[in-house]
Amino acid sequence: MSSSEGERGPEGLETSSSATRPAVSSATRSADGPGPQAARPSKLGGILSLLASELRTLFRRRRTWAMLGALALIPILIAVAIRIAGDSPSGRGPAFLDRITQNGLFVGVTAIIVAIPLFLPLTIGVVAGDSIAGEASHGTLRYLLIAPAGRIRLLVVKYLAAAAFCAAATLTVVVVGTLIGWALFPIGPVTLLSGTEVSVGEGLLRFLMIAAYVTVSLLGLSAIGLFLSTLTTVPVGSMAATAIVAVVAQILGALPQLEWLHPWLFTRYWLDFADLLREPPVWDSFADNAVLQAGYIVVFGLLAAARFVTKDVLS
């Protein structure tokens, strides 16, 4: 089949179609009748293949790189500002800001603290909120579905791609922060919150674990964004709604009157990643956070699936 496929027909639609098509079609039909049943591909293989394609698409988009670039600007601005303006008085500004002049490795963590309330949720909102609604608005959703991508498979792949973006976004902040800190400030053993020092190597490892922690923290929001994305064909709507949900959850989390609600908010552990900077590292909140985010993924994943499998695709 590939040999006839490979043949380059003469230019123009008429001639080339008659040259290649018959050979291709008859070959398949005679070989395995109704093609699909003959060699049924594995479900996992299908997901991986579509995921690879989705990731290529996501990271081939200029918008994705623009957002990662904007996130990278946060540590760069922090580092440059401190380099120019000098040390900040202790206790002012975001946590760890006053440690940067002593140890440039703290730029990344400081940038994460700055980015987590708004900038990270905003970019995740764009990616997750766009996942289904964006395809619908381009009309590509119908072509993916008749390919057929499979509705659940498409949702899973879209979610995994959003999760991959979460990891890319947090890694961008941490890695760029570490590099710019390395370039502009002295580097040394990292002083942990407990007042103990660890080597540069272990410090970097801890920062990577923080990136993992923050990535996990954002998975619940991604699931919410995915669900919102199935509700509309206007991607801007679901993107904005996702970002707003993140902000509202943080405001609710700051209201003591709603204390009963706090354990259920997906933003609950967003700033608790510093537990990994203690000695010994405290993993309790990491585990609690993972369970909480998993709960959000299950609930909003099921909501998204329920909505999407019954949805009439009219765009």
């Binding site: 479900k43 293949s49 698409t57 918008r63 381009h138 009309g139 590509t140």
Partner: peptide, 20 residues
């Protein structure tokens, strides 16, 4: 309907990848 930010070939490859 295609993703405008992808090339023609990339768009086709994408839809093809959606077919298991």
């Amino acid at each position: 309907a295609f993703s405008p930010y992808l090339s023609g070939a990339a768009n086709l490859a994408r839809f093809d990848a959606a077919d298991r």
